[in-house]
């Protein structure tokens, strides 16, 4: 009986995502093959937009976005690993409160949080600079409107997306396995490399994947905290769509981002037992 019901229950979600997730990707891919600066979907197919993307220097924003996403992933992983192990090992009452406190900001709009970050970092009269000046008469510079500022914003926004999958991953490491390795004479590094890292790998992979993919398309961090220091790929696509009114070119850039995403997502998801993590 249940074999017959399954597909029917899957159908509404399936149709919805086919219409508003799969179809838009196909439409964008089709647009990317249309002659430059046209708005029709019936033109002759051409690869001119892709050639122009690399001829007109759009590989730079793409590279900045990829580099920013990679650095964000790395920094988030380095910050989240100790946090996750501490929270896991001291699974007392306060660990639950701390976990909830870390989750809470996800539900506050990123425009509010990035705005707060810029108020905090603002040179001269910002919260940090103003306080230091008033209390200690120290004048400090600011990382606002620089590449570093954009990176700090990216790490700030994406940290929870790394932490929560990693918490599930760290929970998959049995404590007695670590004890056993220690008893057998393994040092801290050996325990980390031979026991903790491989057993927590599914959670770490999902955290890295989520962080990388979300940071790859991120735009607001660079806009609010990076100033004009860096143009990310999403800003470049938006510029092509809106101001240049060149849909096929914007579509070609979008396809390039989707290609990078797919190249990262499919191999990782194929290897990681997502169901096992979700079931926990």
């Amino acid at each position: 009986m249940s074999r017959v019901h399954g597909p029917w229950f899957a159908l509404p979600v399936g149709l919805f995502l086919a219409a508003f997730f799969a179809a838009p990707i196909v439409i964008v891919a089709w647009y990317s093959l249309m002659p430059p600066r046209t708005f029709e979907l019936s033109g002759a197919l051409t690869t001119a937009n892709y050639r122009a993307a690399f001829g007109e220097g759009y590989e730079r924003p793409l590279m900045w976005s990829a580099l920013g996403a990679a650095l964000t992933t790395l920094v988030c992983a380095l910050l989240a690993w100790p946090t996750a192990t501490i929270l896991h090992r001291s699974a007392g009452r306060w660990a639950g409160v701390v976990t909830a406190l870390i989750a809470l900001p996800i539900f506050i709009s990123e425009s509010v949080r990035l705005f707060g970050m810029s108020l905090f970092l603002m040179p001269g009269g910002g919260i940090l600079a103003g306080t230091l000046n008033a209390l200690f008469e120290v004048r400090v510079g600011s990382i606002l409107n620089s590449r570093l500022g954009a990176l700090v914003g990216l790490v700030y926004i994406h940290f929870p997306f790394m932490l929560f999958p990693l918490l599930l991953g760290v929970a998959m490491v049995p404590a007695d396995r670590i004890e056993a390795a220690r008893d057998l004479g393994a040092g801290r590094l050996a325990v980390f490399r031979e026991v903790e890292l491989p057993l927590a790998a599914p959670g770490l992979s999902i955290g890295c994947l989520l962080t990388f993919v979300l940071a790859l398309g991120a735009n607001a961090e660079a806009a609010i905290l990076g100033g004009r220091a860096v143009t990310v790929i999403t800003a470049a696509i938006e510029q092509r769509f809106n101001y240049a009114q060149d849909w096929p070119m914007g579509a070609a850039l979008t396809v390039l981002v989707i290609a990078v995403t797919a190249a990262v997502v499919f191999p990782v998801l194929a290897r990681v037992p997502l169901d096992r993590i979700i079931r926990r």
Binding site: L17, V28, W247, A251, T254, V265
Partner: peptide, 20 residues
């Protein structure tokens, strides 16, 4: 297939939907 939209850059999805 269901989890794919979660692992997708949101602004890129927004732009693709806008175009469509």
């Amino acid at each position: 297939l269901l989890v794919l939209p979660v692992f997708f850059p949101q602004p890129v999805l927004g732009l693709a939907l806008l175009l469509s």
